[in-house]
Simulated scan of single mutants.
Amino acid sequence: MSVALIVGVGDGLSASLARKLAARGYRLVFAARNIAKLGGLAAETKAVTVACDASQKDDVAALFEQVDEMGEALEIAIYNPSARARGPFIEIDPDAVQTGLQVTAFGAFLVAQQAARRMLPRGHGAIFFTGASAGVKGFPQSASFAMGKFALRGLAQSLARELHPKGVHIGHVVVDGAIRNPGRTEPPDRPDSMLDPDAIAETYMQLLEQDRSAWSWEIEVRPWVETF
C-alpha cells in the first residue's frame, strides 16, 4: 500500500478526495490545524490524523516524520489550505496579508519540499495543489488572495519544469467557481452553478492516473454555466 497525504482537510473537496483515494487502496494521512472535526471522515476512510499548521516549518517537518513512521512510500501529497484578507486595498491589515501568504503559498512550499525529498529518490510520486481563479486573474478587494494564489501557481509551474523529468508529477488544479459543500447550495435562480466536490475530486484522480507520456501540470475546472 502507498500513502496519500491531504493537507487542509474539511468536509468539502478534501473529503471527496479522501473517499476516492481510500477506494483506490491508499493509506490516508489527514493534516489540519483542528483535527477534532475529522473524526467521522477519518473513521470512514481509516485515516491517520495529524495536527499541523502548514505555515510553520517545524509543524510540517513533524508531519512528515509521522508519515515516514508508517513505513510505506508517500505516493501523493495534496495541498489545499488558503487564507485571504478581503476589503479595499488601502484598508487591508498587513498582518492578515502576511498570514494569508504564509498559509496559501509558503505552506505549499514547505509541504512540497518535504514530499519531493521523499519522492525523488524513488523517481515516482505526485504533488498536487488546489488553486483558484484568483491565481490567474486578480479581483477587486482581493489583492492578498491573488498574491497567494499567483505565488502558488508559480510554485507549481516551476516544480513541474524541474521535477517532471525526474519522475514526480506536479499538478495545479484551478477551481474557477464556488464549491457545493454541505450546507451550501446554489441559489434558486442559478441551478447547477457550483462545482460538485466529487466531480472535482474525480478530476484529481484522472490527473493522478495520467500516463507520464502525456502529463498535465495544470487543469481548470468550472461549472458549465460559469462565464470567464
Results as ranks from 00 to 15, higher is better:
residue 94 P to K: 13
residue 95 D to G: 11
residue 95 D to S: 15
residue 95 D to L: 12
residue 97 V to P: 06
residue 98 Q to C: 15
residue 98 Q to D: 13
residue 98 Q to W: 08
residue 98 Q to I: 10
residue 99 T to Y: 13
residue 99 T to G: 12
residue 99 T to P: 06
residue 100 G to M: 10
residue 100 G to L: 10
residue 100 G to E: 09
residue 101 L to I: 11
residue 101 L to K: 05
residue 101 L to Q: 08
residue 101 L to V: 09
residue 102 Q to D: 14
residue 103 V to S: 04
residue 103 V to H: 00
residue 103 V to A: 01
residue 104 T to M: 11
residue 104 T to P: 02
residue 104 T to C: 03
residue 105 A to C: 08
residue 105 A to R: 01
residue 106 F to H: 11
residue 106 F to C: 13
residue 107 G to P: 03
residue 107 G to R: 04
residue 107 G to M: 07
residue 108 A to V: 05
residue 108 A to R: 05
residue 109 F to I: 09
residue 109 F to V: 15
residue 110 L to N: 00
residue 110 L to W: 00
residue 110 L to Q: 00
residue 111 V to Q: 02
residue 111 V to E: 02
residue 111 V to F: 08
residue 112 A to E: 05
residue 112 A to N: 04
residue 113 Q to F: 07
residue 113 Q to I: 06
residue 113 Q to C: 08
residue 113 Q to D: 15
residue 114 Q to N: 10
residue 114 Q to K: 14
residue 114 Q to V: 06
residue 114 Q to M: 12
residue 115 A to V: 03
residue 116 A to F: 03
residue 116 A to Q: 06
residue 116 A to W: 01
residue 116 A to P: 01
residue 117 R to Y: 14
residue 118 R to Q: 11
residue 118 R to C: 08
residue 118 R to W: 11
residue 118 R to A: 13
residue 119 M to F: 03
residue 119 M to S: 05
residue 119 M to D: 01
residue 120 L to S: 09
residue 120 L to G: 13
residue 121 P to G: 06
residue 121 P to E: 12
residue 121 P to F: 00
residue 122 R to E: 15
residue 123 G to I: 00
residue 123 G to S: 03
residue 124 H to M: 15
residue 124 H to R: 08
residue 124 H to G: 15
residue 124 H to I: 13
residue 124 H to D: 14
residue 125 G to S: 04
residue 125 G to I: 02
residue 125 G to N: 04
residue 125 G to E: 01
residue 126 A to F: 01
residue 126 A to D: 01
residue 126 A to T: 10
residue 127 I to D: 01
residue 128 F to S: 03
residue 129 F to A: 01
residue 129 F to S: 02
residue 129 F to V: 02
residue 129 F to L: 07
residue 130 T to G: 05
residue 131 G to C: 05
residue 131 G to E: 02
residue 132 A to W: 00
residue 132 A to L: 04
residue 132 A to T: 04
residue 132 A to M: 06
residue 133 S to P: 09
residue 133 S to N: 12
residue 133 S to F: 13
residue 133 S to C: 13
residue 135 G to I: 00
residue 135 G to P: 02
residue 135 G to D: 03
residue 136 V to K: 08
residue 136 V to S: 09
residue 138 G to L: 08
residue 139 F to L: 10
residue 140 P to N: 11
residue 141 Q to M: 10
residue 141 Q to Y: 13
residue 142 S to Y: 09
residue 143 A to P: 04
residue 143 A to Y: 03
residue 143 A to K: 02
residue 143 A to G: 10
residue 144 S to M: 11
residue 144 S to N: 07
residue 145 F to C: 03
residue 145 F to R: 02
residue 145 F to M: 10
residue 145 F to I: 07
residue 146 A to E: 14
residue 146 A to D: 14
residue 146 A to M: 11
residue 146 A to C: 12
residue 147 M to N: 02
residue 147 M to I: 11
residue 148 G to I: 10
residue 148 G to M: 15
residue 148 G to W: 15
residue 149 K to W: 02
residue 149 K to Y: 02
residue 150 F to R: 01
residue 150 F to E: 07
residue 150 F to T: 06
residue 150 F to M: 03
residue 150 F to Q: 06
residue 150 F to P: 01
residue 151 A to P: 04
residue 152 L to R: 07
residue 152 L to V: 07
